[in-house]
């Protein structure tokens, strides 16, 4: 996982979607406990760990990781 969403906190505002340069963030089909369609990333491999999504998220929903070089080589 390179990008992790704290789903219950998401208000589905879509700002992360608007600023993801890889265009890999989408609103899920299901509703979260607040009644919003939470943002999610299915295609984690395409994530470049740029963190633009996290910087624009008003609700601090997103945590971003970058794999170590070694791990990338293996995968």
């Amino acid at each position: 996982m390179k990008v992790l969403f704290n789903e219950g906190w998401c208000k589905g505002c879509g700002l992360c979607i608007a600023f993801c340069p890889q265009e890999i963030i989408h609103l899920a089909e299901h509703l979260n406990r607040k009644g919003y369609r939470p943002a999610q990333v299915v295609d984690q491999d395409k994530c470049t760990s740029c963190a633009a999504c996290a910087r624009m998220c008003p609700d601090t929903v997103i945590t971003v990781y970058r794999p170590d070089r070694k791990q990338t080589a293996v995968s």
Binding site: A54, R55, T60, T63, V64, Y65, R66, P67
Partner: peptide
């Protein structure tokens, strides 16, 4: 894994 971005401790746990 290196953490590039995580929630700051400067905010409480309140939504």
């Amino acid at each position: 894994m290196k953490t590039v971005f995580k929630r700051t401790t400067g905010l409480t746990d309140a939504e």
